[in-house]
């Protein structure tokens, strides 16, 4: 098999592993994420443990990568060229933090949740009952979660790109 195909399979497999891990960790639940951020209220520290465990395992991989000249299926390691802590980074992180606090959802959760009564469940409405009748506690909330996920991909990305012309051109 060519490396190009291996790269695709790796992406599919690691994406699946990521989504499965997210489900198993309990962090697919926006309520728990908001509970973690609710330091001054009903604080739920579990996300901190999840983050520490995930970072530790991931760090082992990055340490291993330092002893490798190149990735297994790619010519070089792709790391961000930008090293400076600039205004854009801080502003972007702050805006993200506000949206994260409001919803308890980050891009990973948006995407992994699509099947949890989000976009897919709603677009193929009658399929929901077939998949799991208890899947959608509130149809409208779920629809909106799906729409918000779309907003991430469709509105957010190009909007930010217009502020950062150097990173890309618009996809359409």
């Amino acid at each position: 098999m060519t490396n190009a195909i291996m790269r695709l399979l790796v992406a599919l497999g690691t994406g699946g592993l990521f989504g499965f891990g997210l489900s198993l960790s309990g962090m697919l639940d926006p309520k728990r994420v908001r509970g973690f951020l609710d330091v001054f209220g009903n604080f739920d520290p579990s996300l901190a443990f999840v983050l520490v465990a995930a970072v530790s395992v991931s760090a082992a991989g990055y340490l291993l990568s330092r002893r490798m000249r190149e990735p297994l299926f790619e010519r070089c390691f792709h790391l961000p060229a930008q090293r400076r802590i600039d205004r854009r980074l801080i502003e972007g992180a702050a805006v993200f933090g506000i949206g994260w606090g409001m919803s308890g959802l980050c891009p990973g959760l948006f995407f992994a949740s699509l099947f949890l009564g989000g976009m897919t469940g709603q677009v193929f409405f009658f399929a929901v009952d077939y998949i799991d009748a208890r899947l959608t506690p509130d149809v409208y909330v779920c629809t909106l979660t799906g729409m918000a996920a779309l907003a991430v991909a469709i509105i957010g990305a190009p909007l930010a790109m217009s502020f950062r012309p150097e990173i890309s051109r618009l996809p359409w």
Partner: peptide, 25 residues
Amino acid sequence: AHYGGRLSLLALAGALVGFGTRLGS
């Protein structure tokens, strides 16, 4: 998974998350 809060806020949050994460890389 428990989704809650006002729908309008959730939609706004989605846009903020998308915008912020791209701006902040």
